[in-house]
């Protein structure tokens, strides 16, 4: 497959998107970043993403709902949940509902890249460049 990995990142903390955008782009992903769940969901209707990375706890619409909506649109999409201290239970629930994996805040960019690499592998993206020493 020569297609590039399409990734959507949803977190209501602006800095998360701001930093993950270049971090993921470096390893060959096309990244779209959203802060508002409603906007992200409407974008998902328009475009099929391979991977969706979403925070669990947000105003208005929470990560579980995003998960359900994404899988409802395209069950093949790999959804990675970002969880915090108080939402580990919710993260387990998310796994049961079909999430690919979860990653707990605070995390390093490389940790997310590793999870995304696994998801990409599961999707059949064998040539995704995930160099351990990407920056060095």
């Amino acid at each position: 497959m020569s297609e590039r990995l399409q990734v959507l990142v949803l977190d209501d903390e602006p800095i998360v998107g701001k930093r993950l955008q270049p971090a993921l782009a470096k390893v060959g992903c096309d990244v779209e970043v959203f802060e508002a769940p409603a906007e992200a969901l409407s974008r998902i209707l328009d475009k099929d993403f391979h991977i969706v990375v979403t925070d669990i706890r947000m105003e208005d619409i929470d990560g579980i709902e995003v998960l359900e909506r994404v899988l409802g649109k395209n069950p093949k999409t790999k959804v990675i949940m970002i969880t915090g201290y108080a939402t580990v239970e919710v993260a387990r629930e998310a796994l049961a509902k079909g999430a690919f994996d979860f990653i707990a805040k605070p995390f390093k960019p490389q940790e997310l890249r590793d999870v995304i690499a696994k998801a990409a592998l599961a999707l059949g993206f064998k040539n995704l460049a995930v160099p351990q020493e990407a920056a060095e």
């Binding site: 930093r19 993950l20 270049p22 971090a23 990407a134 920056a135």
Partner: peptide, 21 residues
């Protein structure tokens, strides 16, 4: 504790990317 994770996460991501790039 949950709320605290947000700034810490932001710091981690920013510091890591600063180091990397």
């Amino acid at each position: 504790a949950h709320e605290l994770n947000n700034p810490i996460n932001n710091i981690t991501l920013t510091a890591e990317m600063l180091k990397e790039d």
